[in-house]
């Protein structure tokens, strides 16, 4: 098993290399000339050419890529074309906002998803099970931007219960984290349910119950450990989806994270920012996946990789 993780760890730089290449090439392939964009609609051709030199865009692509790689290793992703601040600085100030939102979203997803999934397993085939499964599958079937806007209109505008936009106190987290957490919540509930059903059918549980241990104690003793596995699995598998969803969620809620940064950067063809955000998003997904694998193997010694 150790060998498996060493192998995976060694793969990380290879994957990142592939990712960086794709990102670099695709960004150069984007239509739209950043030099003209920065110079402005009324700029002369001369001004546009000067801008291109200023941005280092006139060098051959391989040299640009080599320079990009060297800089990236040092954590230097260049300077934002638009804000003229270092990309690393822009990312640093935004990454925390995205991660805290994702963390809260997962927290809610777990807080509701696990008990719901357990209830569904315990009352398998009966009303609680059916309700949980219907809600879970609905949660995975709604377009998040649409739900977000409808929730905003109802809870923030009409009822005035929650703040509408931006990042602030705990109340600011409620609507964005529901938007972001709905899908993981649905997945956690389903995973918890199926793993609990499997556990409940194990011989040792039957024995424990036959020995007269209370149902509640049995569930608590065995369920907690078993609940951890689906949560970690979902976080690992779904993290990319959540990071992707922040693009939409942050745009709607004016959340100052990397998702909104990416949308703005694409709109203004801010190459260094697009590169930086994409790489950061991918690195965090790869790392979270790796850690999730590691954790599962610790939690569940039955799992073998190879």
């Amino acid at each position: 098993m150790q060998a498996y993780f060493v192998k995976k760890l060694l793969m990380l730089p290879l994957i990142l290399l592939g990712v960086s290449f794709i990102v670099f090439v695709s960004i150069r392939a984007l239509p739209g000339d950043p030099a003209r964009l920065m110079a402005g609609p009324e700029a002369t051709q001369q001004a546009v050419d000067d801008m291109r030199v200023r941005l280092g865009l006139e060098q051959p692509l391989p040299i640009q890529y080599a320079g990009f790689l060297m800089d990236a290793v040092r954590g230097d992703f260049g300077t934002s074309i638009r804000s003229q601040k270092p990309v690393s600085e822009e990312l640093a100030s935004r990454f925390g906002a995205t991660m805290s939102l994702a963390a809260v979203a997962y927290f809610f997803a777990t807080l509701i998803g696990v008990p719901a999934g357990m209830a569904a397993a315990v009352w398998k085939g009966r009303a609680p099970d059916q309700i949980v499964m219907i809600v879970a599958i609905l949660g995975a079937s709604v377009a998040n931007f649409w739900l977000a806007l409808i929730m905003m209109d109802y809870f923030a505008v009409q009822k005035g219960w929650l703040p509408l936009l931006g990042m602030g106190g705990p109340a600011h987290y409620v609507l964005p984290s529901i938007t972001l957490g709905l899908l993981p919540m649905a997945l956690v509930a389903r995973m918890t349910r199926s793993s609990m059903i499997e556990t409940l059918e194990q011989d040792y549980i039957r024995t424990a119950r036959a020995k007269g241990l209370g149902a509640f104690r049995v569930y608590r003793r065995h369920a907690l450990r078993n609940a951890m596995i689906p949560i970690v699995t979902i976080i690992g598998l779904n993290f990319g989806g959540v990071v992707g969803s922040t693009v939409v969620t942050e745009t709607i809620f004016n959340w100052p994270g990397i998702g909104r940064l990416l949308v703005d950067a694409v709109r203004f063809r801010d190459y260094p920012i697009i590169q930086g955000v994409t790489l950061l998003a991918v690195v965090s997904v790869v790392v979270v996946n790796f850690l999730a694998d590691l954790l599962i193997s610790v939690l569940d010694p039955r799992v073998r990789f190879g």
């Binding site: 739209g32 000339d33 003209r36 964009l37 709109r267 203004f268």
Partner: peptide
């Protein structure tokens, strides 16, 4: 088109 591409 997005603003950047549109301008061009």
């Amino acid at each position: 088109l997005e603003s950047g591409v549109w301008v061009e």
